[in-house]
């Protein structure tokens, strides 16, 4: 956990957050400390407790135990002051209202809102002002919700899987809007299960798995992990130890003749593999999934 000067309160400090639903520990002891101006991603597979964590930060879900402070205040107080904005996973828009009306109404509830024009412009949807929300595409809806989240001119923005359901173009547009927000020195926390989004847009990554923070690291760590590749091949008579000894191999599994290797430098590994096993065939190289990254992280952690 980083420390911040006492003169400047942390944007977010969460201590010992826990929440269970029945027998399931959705969040099981999460600590977070995020400084103002940081862009942090909460990365984790589905069911890792990302949404529950986000909801507890926002005060929408009451933790069973633990505390949340947003700029030194309770979430409820921070919401009241308009310092938190959020794009929720199922946050909806009113079906029988226009984009301008929805954003304008939310603006009217806040003390020091942006103008509707400004909020729409920042979210890149100024041309949709008169459009009924039922007439929006999925990507447009998401950006209108971004405008709703930004109209209070918040200092902390929480985005829960913000690009879910967006195509590549709208995804790019969305992150462009988000960047102009972070350029103002605002704090952003976003939850995602896309490694690439974390790699491209965050300064810092919190890895969450089964309701627990398994790693809390810099973006370089993710870059290295994201550069890993999974290499598969069929090698008759293969021995696991030989494969493990190949250069840049982090992990190797052997199922009969089938070999699966996670490598931090697949070019190097592949060359060595072909040299050592000329009879290898059926070779595939693929980017690693989140599961492999998590495996690597947790394996790392236990080895050290």
């Amino acid at each position: 956990m980083g420390t911040t000067p006492s003169t400047e309160p942390t944007a977010l400090r969460a201590v010992g957050l826990r929440k269970r639903y029945g027998d399931v520990h959705a969040v099981n002891g999460v600590d977070l400390s995020i400084a103002p101006g940081e862009v942090v991603t909460i990365l984790g597979p589905n069911g890792a407790g990302k949404s529950t964590t986000v909801n507890m930060i926002l005060g929408l879900t009451r933790p069973d135990s633990g505390e949340v402070a947003v700029f030194g205040r309770s979430p409820a107080q921070a919401v009241k002051e308009g310092r938190i904005g959020a794009v929720l996973q199922e946050g909806a828009l009113l079906e029988d209202a226009t984009v301008g009306e929805i954003v304008g109404m939310v603006a009217s509830l806040h003390r020091k809102p942006l103008t509707v024009e400004e909020a729409l412009r920042r979210a890149g949807v100024e041309d949709l002002r008169r459009r009924r929300s039922t007439k929006l595409s999925g990507g447009q809806k998401q950006r209108v919700r971004f405008a709703v989240a930004m109209v209070s001119d918040p200092d902390l923005l929480l985005l829960d899987e913000p690009t879910a359901g967006m195509d590549v173009t709208t995804r790019r547009e969305f992150w462009k809007s988000m960047r102009s927000f972070t350029a103002l020195g605002r704090t952003v926390i976003f939850a995602t299960h896309h490694l690439e989004e974390a790699e491209e847009h965050a300064d810092k990554v919190v890895f969450l798995k089964k309701g627990v923070v398994v790693a809390d690291g810099s973006i370089d760590q993710v870059r290295t992990l994201a550069a890993s590749r999974t290499l598969r091949a069929v090698i008759p008579g293969v021995v696991r130890e030989t494969v493990l000894a190949l250069p840049s191999v982090d992990r190797a599994e052997v199922f009969g003749e089938k070999v699966e290797v996670v490598s931090s430098n697949s070019d190097e590994t592949l060359r060595a593999l072909l040299a050592a096993f000329p009879e290898a065939h059926g070779i595939e190289v693929a980017g690693v999934g989140l599961d492999e990254v998590f495996f690597a992280l947790t394996a790392d952690g236990s080895a050290k």
């Binding site: 005060g59 946050g91 909806a92 806040h110 003390r111």
Partner: peptide, 16 residues
Amino acid sequence: NERAAGWQRQLRLTPL
């Protein structure tokens, strides 16, 4: 309808 659509949650993030 507004609860099912998640609109109430959105409003809970405002001073209302």
